[in-house]
Write a protein that binds this DNA or RNA. Structure first.
Length: 709
RNA sequence: GAUGCUGUAGUUCAGUGGGUAGAACGUAAUACUCAUAAUAUUAAGGUCAAUGGUUCGAAUCCAUUCAGUAUCACCA
């Protein structure tokens, strides 16, 4: 295809650095770490030189705020989660070459050098001074989201510094009436501060060429057709919207110090320092392993691939590449195969509601579940959100564990091992036939699997894995050696059949390794072989091109199940484990139904109530308000007159359905403009725990304009 | 609100330089018994979100609409 590919000798793979302020869940695992691990393990199997770097992202205001709330030093927070996450990752079989952390000195130096290089070059940064809100109690400048106040446009009392959720208008914190810090609850003061901005806008032109055509500095860099649609789409949409300078410093005492004398008390903004963590991690690894990090970052012979979730696309496809290009000398990623998000039983993961399962939690709860890590890795790969959001369901986990891993793969391997022991005393039979020819269909599947991984189609690849054992099952069924054995136990057909089946088991042992490494080791040990080594797939392909991958008369091991089925007549323990997880969710759902009745408000007086003039009325016209999701413009007949009312009910009621609807209208409410339309009253609605709105109305044809008391 | 992505069999998803729709699971029938009541074969099942357009021909291209989801300049 092109020459550049042939130059590639090394691969550098990154998985997005997890933020070290909390435990991680299945979504992080399947979106980011698992695909990277599969890819990296595959490259190693192919005998490629590859380094996979990752680590904890440990800076940023979120961590300092959490530390203050818990009365801890930020270091204590990040230590806790760094080591916890690292331990979980090891148990899950993630094969990082290094799991780094951005609080290490080598990272601080690297990030500072990077900043300093851009600064000294000139033209990449600009300085701006302005006034920002500052929380004196917390001794911290406040991000927009940490400020609340009254909205200047709709007077909603709980507007955020960046946006009012009531009227939807974009705000600046300075516009808020009576601003309050959400950290201390006190009124913040205005303070002047200076920050450095990275001139991202300068990079728009080459970025577009790079993303659209895959060309960099007039040369071929990568094939944009191999990028996922949603990745390219989002990037180009960003470029279309125009790029703007972005602040890259913060007023904080936790983070990488800005290496300038005039920048005391300022640190690099985490999104600037975090991706540089990939570089410092590589340096750290290289130092430990006697390698040169530049061979991976600054060499044409190395390919860079970033794995991440869709929330991180623009950072890795626009901002970080711009930083690297501005610095000069660095490789840019040849692909950024971002995944979408994983939901859990139909909803988003939510730590606060207990919806979902954390990685540590899974590892602990399923500790005694045989091969529980591979069971999870398999289920998550099968449902990987490669091109759209996907959903983890326990029932599907059970299904694919039992039907695919146990019945298809596990049972195939088992029946081959059992038959080999039975017919040949556990020795791999030698045959005279054309083994290579017999294995051709298997080789085709293997090739497809290989290509799928190279194309980052892991879901399809793992299906090919299953196809391999399906082929094995079908093949056994077609030949049915047990039938032949009854009449002619010495038949060469039996030998040939079993040799082919054993070869397939051997192939499965090698090629399953990127996906389900523990199972791979177990298959190998059933064949009496060592765990597969780097280059194992390359070696296997060489052997297959000559004939088979196994040696004649190899003494294999005794049968042992790879996966214990969840639906097991004799042992209900695994099913109980799953049922307990499902019961937990039911409990949450029921609790939500039960609670969430608003407490009764403070006492009021009859006189106050009488101030309300509530009238019966009928909706005679209804239309959607433009530029508003929730609003309908209604004309209500209240007998003596008609009123125009803007009502936030569009999510639950279509305009055409509610014409003729009888309603109750609060008629003496002060008029207010909503989205430019004067609303002369308020329709009374009942709202349930889901936020659904229902009309409250008199019985049919009651008549308009009567008072409600 | 703008923009990106997504919307295909009961379920989970593949699929496009436009030319009689694919898999897995589930369902039904049959075969087999070496194996974890496993396996194999066959069958049924889809106006490819809706509407309009381009075309000899559209699930595939264009437009509009609807739904889900993400991003939208200091949120890590």
């Amino acid at each position: 295809m092109n020459d550049t590919k042939n130059k590639i000798k090394r691969y550098l793979v990154t998985a997005a650095l997890p933020y070290a302020n909390g435990p991680l869940h299945l979504g992080h695992f399947t979106g980011n770490f698992l695909p990277a691990d599969i890819y990296v393990r595959f490259l190693r199997l192919e005998g490629k030189e590859v380094v996979w770097v990752c680590g904890s992202d440990e800076h940023g205001a979120a961590i300092t705020i959490q530390a203050k709330k818990e009365g801890l030093h930020p270091k204590e927070i990040v230590d806790k989660y760094h080591f916890a996450n690292k331990a979980s990752f090891e148990q899950l079989g993630l094969s990082f070459d290094i799991y780094h952390r951005t609080s290490l000195p080598i990272h601080h130096e690297t990030a500072q050098d990077f900043f300093k290089t851009l600064y000294d070059k000139g033209g990449q940064f600009e300085e701006k001074t302005n006034e920002q809100y500052y929380d004196e109690a917390f001794d911290q400048f406040l991000a927009d989201r940490y400020i609340k106040g009254e909205c200047p446009k709709c007077n909603h009392p709980e507007a955020y510094g960046d946006q009012c959720e009531n009227c939807g208008s974009d705000l600046s914190p300075l516009e808020l009436i009576n601003p309050v810090s959400t950290l201390s609850g006190k009124k913040p003061i205005l303070k002047e501060t200076t920050h450095w901005y990275f001139k991202l806008d300068k990079h728009a032109d080459w970025l577009r060429v790079w993303l659209e055509k895959g060309e960099l500095d007039g040369q071929f860099h990568h094939d944009p057709k191999k990028w996922k649609k949603h990745v390219l789409g989002q990037c180009l949409s960003w470029l279309d919207g125009g790029l703007f300078p972005r602040a890259i410093t913060r007023d904080l005492d936790w983070g990488v110090k800005v290496p300038l004398p005039q920048a005391d008390g300022k640190v690099l903004y985490v999104w600037f320092d975090a991706p540089i963590g990939y570089i410092s991690a590589t340096k750290d690894w290289a130092k430990e392993n006697g390698k040169d990090w530049k061979d991976f970052w600054q060499s044409e012979e190395c390919e860079l691939v970033h794995f991440l979730g869709k929330d991180n696309i623009v950072f890795h496809c626009i901002i970080f590449p711009s930083m690297l290009k501005a610095h000069g000398g660095y490789n840019l990623p040849v692909n950024v195969p971002a995944n979408q998000f994983l939901n859990f039983e139909g909803r988003k993961f939510s730590k606060s509601k207990g919806w979902g399962i954390g990685l540590t939690e899974y590892l602990e709860t399923f500790e005694n579940f045989p091969n529980h890590v591979d069971a999870l890795r398999y289920a998550l790969t099968r449902g990987m959100p490669e091109n759209k959001d996907s959903d983890f369901k326990w029932d599907e986990f059970v299904d694919c564990h039992d039907k695919e891993l146990a019945d298809n793969l596990g049972n195939f391997v088992n029946r081959v091992i059992v038959l080999t022991n039975k017919y040949f005393g556990g020795k791999v039979p030698s045959i005279d036939g054309d083994l290579k020819g017999l294995l051709q269909p298997v080789q085709n599947l293997l090739n497809k699997l290989t290509q799928d991984i190279k194309d980052f189609k892991f879901k399809s690849a793992i299906l090919q894995l299953m196809e391999l054992s399906t082929y094995g099952n079908t093949y056994l069924q077609d030949v049915s050696p047990w039938k032949i054995y009854k009449t002619d136990p010495e038949s060469p057909v039996i030998k040939e059949c079993m040799r082919v089946a054993l070869e397939i088991v051997n192939i499965l042992g090698v090629v399953s390794q990127p996906f389900i490494p523990f199972t791979s080791n177990k298959i190998r040990s059933l064949l009496n072989l060592e765990p597969v080594q780097n280059g194992g797939l390359q070696k296997l392909n060489e052997q297959l091109s000559k004939g088979g991958g196994l040696t004649d008369n190899l003494q294999i091991g005794t049968p042992d199940l790879l996966f214990a089925k969840i639906h097991d007549r004799k042992d209900s323990s695994r099913l109980e484990l799953i049922e307990a997880q499902k019961a937990k969710l039911t409990t949450i759902l029921e609790a939500e139904k039960a609670e969430e009745r608003m407490p009764v408000k403070a006492q009021t007086s009859f006189d106050d109530f009488c101030k309300m003039d509530i009238r019966t009325g009928t909706i005679i016209e209804a239309e959607k308000v433009k530029k508003a999701d929730k609003l309908l413009k209604l004309i209500v007949d209240i007998g003596l007159e008609t009123r125009t009312v803007v009502s936030g009910i569009a999510k639950f009621h279509k305009p055409e359905d509610i014409i003729g609807q009888e309603v109750l209208l609060l008629a003496n409410l002060a008029p207010r403009k909503l989205r430019g339309i004067e609303s002369q009253g308020m329709i009374l609605m009942a709202e349930n725990e889901k936020g659904e709105l229902a009309f409250v109305s008199p019985p049919k044809a009651f008549g308009n304009g009567f008072e409600v008391r």
